[in-house]
Structure formats: structure tokens, C-alpha cells
Design a protein around this nucleic acid. Structure first.
Lengths: 193, 193
DNA sequence: TGAAAATAATTAACATTGTTAATTATTTAT
DNA sequence: ATAAATAATTAACAATGTTAATTATTTTCA
């Protein structure tokens, strides 16, 4: 029976949407089974008919957020010159996205996964590289950059950005947004040149 | 009356020691008021006579762990050549320490601070730089390294290490320890040369 | 030294959390 | 339309952080 699956997906969607709204708004600290169910218009126990636990539900939001983030970034960097310049722009937009939605940063990098989240973890771990894939390939094809060290630089960039966001969002360092962005530019200039 | 303060400090010490033991052993997930009090040999409510809340208690461990970490690292790098080589060795020992005690990593970089933890946050944010301070000064004094970019490289190193540990400990990337350490060496070579 | 006052420690209690079991409501099949 | 199946809800439990009420202990000083 196909209707059954359609309806099930629909209801799962309501819970996922509720979770996403809470994550974007109040953040991870406000995620609770009862909060989500309220927002979705169901009782808290109903959630367990569609998800094995709250962890699974929360991690199901990752794909949607990646989609949204990618779309936003692509719009933001569309006028940048392909290659290094665009990688810089992507990096900036990437940081801006997570700083705007700290709850999504927490979900992506801080929230502890339960068993069976290997697939989602893989999505998270490869996300930034996927965002830059085309531009790195462009750089390689034009031999704008030493081929051997591309993998190293990609990784370095990813680690640097994540570390920077962690210190800014979780350790209030630096204190103000402008200083962080300036810092970011300095780092990008140093790594990608 | 001085005795009062001595005794108070002693009992605070019992709670702090209990918290440290749990963090080094079971990790942050096992931190709870009742667990800590059990381990300290007191009732859970007694804790609130000495600490305003569990957050304050947990962050009071930071200083001790930094002391321990610094001592371990200093012993481990004592035979390294001063300067870049020792900075590399410090970085490796730093990562090893947090990988050995993931609960301490969580405390330092993941745990959300409450109000009034600015001082501890400052300690955390400057920790790695303090570990390398003497060797960077040596590098500068010997003009082994372009003076202008030292600050940038220091920051980059700190962000890279933290990001790397975050991905390894929290996102299982890479999966095995050896690969992570090898990765680390590649990154250190690339950043510090 | 022994009763009164101060201090420390404990138990009781509350609200919140995730999760499961028992129960009720609704939909589906015959 | 009634029986069976499915979905949704309420009740309940254990664990959490925290505060209030109560009990135990130590200190003060006559």
C-alpha cells in the first residue's frame, strides 16, 4: 500500500520541520521531545512511532540544512571568479551561515551521534569539500596551485574554519563578529596563496 | 577565622577531585551532581554549599588539567630542538593528551559555559599559545621565521589542531588513530615550514 | 562543662528530561 | 455495521539539576 508510506513520510516531515524550526530559532538547547511534538502538533509519544529516538530525528535534519546552506552559498558566490577567489568566498559564506544559526553548527559538529549515524557523519565530514569541489578541480586543471598539496590545503582549510567557528561560537573568542571576520580574511589569505 | 577557609577549600577539593576523576574516566556524559557527590563521599545537596552550580564546579577543573597537560607535554618534548621542531612536538603531545582524555577535550572546547566563566574561557583560549610561547620567541629572536606572519601561523595552528581533534573525537574522521596522527604530521609539516 | 546559636549535611520535593507501557481513538476490512 | 488493525494519547518511570525543609554537628560562651 503506497498511501501508507506517503502519509508516514508526511508526518515524519512535520516532525522534521518542527525540529528544524527549533534548531534555527532557539537552538539545540531547546530541543526536547515535548517541544518538538508541540511544534509539530502531536503528542510527545507519537514521535516514537516515526523515529526510534530524538537523536535520529535531529540528525535527519542535516541533509536539509546542507541543501539550504549550499543554495545560499551558491547564490552568494555566483559573481566570484572561479578558483581560489571563489573558494575564499565560499569559506566566508560558510562561516556566516553557521554563525547566523549556531544551533545548526552544534548539530553538525558538536552533537553526539548515536549508533547508526555513520552515513550522516560522512555527509558532515565531506560537506565543505563538496562545496569547493568544482573550484579545486578548476585550480588543478589550470595548474594554478601545486597539485600535490591540494589535499593538504583542503584539509587545512576545513580544520581551520571549523576550529575558528568553534572558538567564536563556543568560547567567545574573539568577542566581536567583525574581529572574527577580519581574522578569517587574514587566515584565508595566508592559506590560499 | 582561617581554619574555616582551609576546611572549605579542602572540601571543595574533594568535589573537584571527584569531578576530575569522572571526566578522565567515564567522561562528560557521566558527570552529574549525584555522581560527583557519590564519588566525593557527600550527599548531592552538599555540593551546593560549595559551588553555585555544577557548571561552576566542572569549569574549576580546567586549571588543574592545564597544569597536568603542560607538565606532561614539557616532559615529552624536553629533548626536542628549541623552535619549530619543539612546536611540532608540543602540537603532537597536545593532541595525544586530549585524545587520551576525550572528556577533558569536551570540557575545554565543547561544554557550554554559564555566566561568570570569562576567566576560565580566557585560560582555555590562550592555552596552546602559552605552551608554545617560549619556542615562538626563540624563533623570532633567531629570525628563523618571518616575524609578521607569526601571529597568523600561531592562530592557524591552534585552529587546525582544535578542528582536527573535533573531527576525530566527535565525528570519527578519520576512523583510526594512526591515520589521524599521520594526518597531523602532514599538516604540521605544511604549516610550519 | 552544658545549653544556645550557628553552621553543615541530608532528605524531601519539584520541575524537566527521554523513553516505554497501557489505554483510548480512529481507520480499514469484511 | 461490526471486528481487526493501526495510530495517537495519557500514565508512568528513571534520571537530571536545583531549592526548601529538616536533621546533625560544631562552635560559642556563661
Amino acid at each position: 500500500m503506497k498511501n501508507k508510506q506517503i502519509q508516514e513520510q508526511r508526518i515524519k516531515g512535520y516532525f522534521i520541520q518542527a525540529t528544524k524550526d527549533i534548531l534555527k530559532g532557539e537552538g539545540l538547547k531547546s530541543i526536547s521531545v515535548r517541544n518538538i511534538a508541540d511544534q509539530a502538533g502531536y503528542s510527545y509519544a507519537t514521535l516514537y512511532n516515526y523515529f526510534s529516538d530524538v537523536n535520529e530525528l535531529v540528525f535527519e535534519c542535516v541533509k536539509d540544512f546542507q541543501q539550504e546552506c549550499e543554495t545560499i552559498i551558491q547564490q552568494e558566490v555566483i559573481n566570484e571568479a572561479q578558483g581560489i577567489d571563489r573558494i575564499k568566498a565560499i569559506s566566508r559564506a560558510y562561516v556566516k551561515y553557521f554563525v547566523q544559526y549556531p544551533g545548526i553548527f552544534e548539530l553538525f559538529f558538536l552533537e553526539k551521534p548515536a549508533k547508526g549515524q555513520e552515513e550522516t557523519l560522512q555527509l558532515i565530514n565531506t560537506f565543505f569539500d563538496r562545496l569547493c569541489l568544482a573550484d579545486w578541480q578548476y585550480c588543478i586543471s589550470k595548474t594554478m596551485v601545486p597539485l600535490r598539496s591540494v589535499e593538504v590545503v583542503k584539509q587545512q582549510l576545513n580544520y581551520m574554519l571549523t576550529g575558528m567557528m568553534l572558538f567564536y561560537l563556543n568560547r567567545r573568542h574573539p568577542i566581536d563578529y567583525a574581529a572574527m571576520l577580519q581574522n578569517l580574511d587574514v587566515q584565508l589569505l595566508h592559506i590560499l596563496s
